[in-house]
Structure formats: C-alpha cells, structure tokens
C-alpha cells in the first residue's frame, strides 16, 4: 500500500524511551566513585617507614642515574607534548572550519557536546596517568582520544562539503 514517505519521520516513535541523556553521565558517575576511593594501606606504621626508605633510595637512584636516562624521559615527555599540541592545533583548525561552513545550530551544539565529552575523558585519563606514569594502556587511550576527536570533526566537515557538489538537480532519477 502506498503512503507518503514524509510520514516516516513521524512514525518513528517506537523508541518511546530514548537512550537516556544521562546514559554517559550515569556510567561516568560510577567511574568517578572508583576514582575517589582512597588506596588502603594495610601496613600502617611499617609502611610509612618503608615509604621513607623508598624515598631515600629513590633519591640515591635519581642522583646516580646516567644523563641519557634523563634525556630519554625528557624525550618522551617532549614527544608526547608535541603529539598532543599537533592534534589540538588540528582539532581547533577543523572546528573553526566546521563553524564556518555550517549554519545548523543544532548540529553545532551536538558536536560541542561530543567534543566536551572527549575533553572530560581526556582530563580523567591524564589524572590517572599522574598516578600510573608510563602505563601503556593509559597513554594509548590519550592518543586514541585525540585521534577520535580529530576524526569526528574531519568527518562532519567532509560530509558538509560533499553536500554541495557542482551539479544540482530537482529531477527524479529512474533506474
């Protein structure tokens, strides 16, 4: 039976309950609870003494390590901050372009929200990294976060550009 396909948009109320807006927040709250849990020290005073010894040993180690080790650490930090800087620069560039080529305020708002979510994740992972420096999974997560942000904006920019090809038509194509 034929019907007006314009009605299709109205017909899609089958998902009476939308994916809750708080879906992400609910999960992240749970995640935060885990983050705020303080580490439990089992050994009380003995641990404190051990910690002080560890500090002394670390200082001894620090003063005895070779210069190239320091260079390596710096090299790592420099490399990483360079990667981060490059990504953020490109993300910003793409974002400015996106705002320039679209007039759809709803779309801009949606993407702002998505980028904010990525940014919140990034801050969380950075905090975790302070606690566990050089954790491979955390470092990968940081880079993946930046990659995904850039990809997100690049893809929508490409999409919008493709909506304006040279040929325009209002005649139906029959195949």
């Amino acid at each position: 039976m034929e019907h007006d396909i314009r009605d299709l948009f109205q017909e899609n109320d089958d998902f009476k309950k939308d994916l809750p807006k708080s879906h992400r927040e609910d999960f992240l709250n749970k995640l935060n609870k885990n983050n705020t849990q303080k580490p439990k020290w089992k050994f009380g005073t003995a641990y404190k003494i051990a910690a002080s010894v560890a500090l002394i040993l670390s200082l001894m180690y620090f003063f005895s390590i070779k210069t190239d080790d320091i260079d390596n650490t710096n090299s790592f930090e420099n490399q990483f901050s360079k990667i981060e800087k490059d990504y953020l620069k490109n993300i910003d560039k793409e974002w400015k372009q996106f705002k320039k080529i679209t007039t759809d305020t709803l779309l801009i708002r949606k993407y702002e929200e998505k980028l904010n979510n990525f940014n919140d994740d990034y801050k969380k992972i950075t905090n975790q990294l302070k606690e566990f420096p050089n954790d491979i999974n955390l470092l990968e997560s940081l880079i993946t976060n930046l990659q995904r942000r850039l990809q997100l904006i690049k893809e929508i920019n490409e999409h919008i550009k493709e909506l304006n090809p040279k040929n325009t038509s209002n005649e139906t194509i029959y195949i």
């Binding site: 493709e162 909506l163 040929n167 038509s169």
Partner: peptide
C-alpha cells in the same frame, strides 16, 4: 561517478 545535489 557523478555527484548531484538535490533539494537544497
């Protein structure tokens, strides 16, 4: 191979 825009 042709790109055409509709109903803009």
């Amino acid at each position: 191979g042709t790109k055409t825009s509709f109903g803009a």
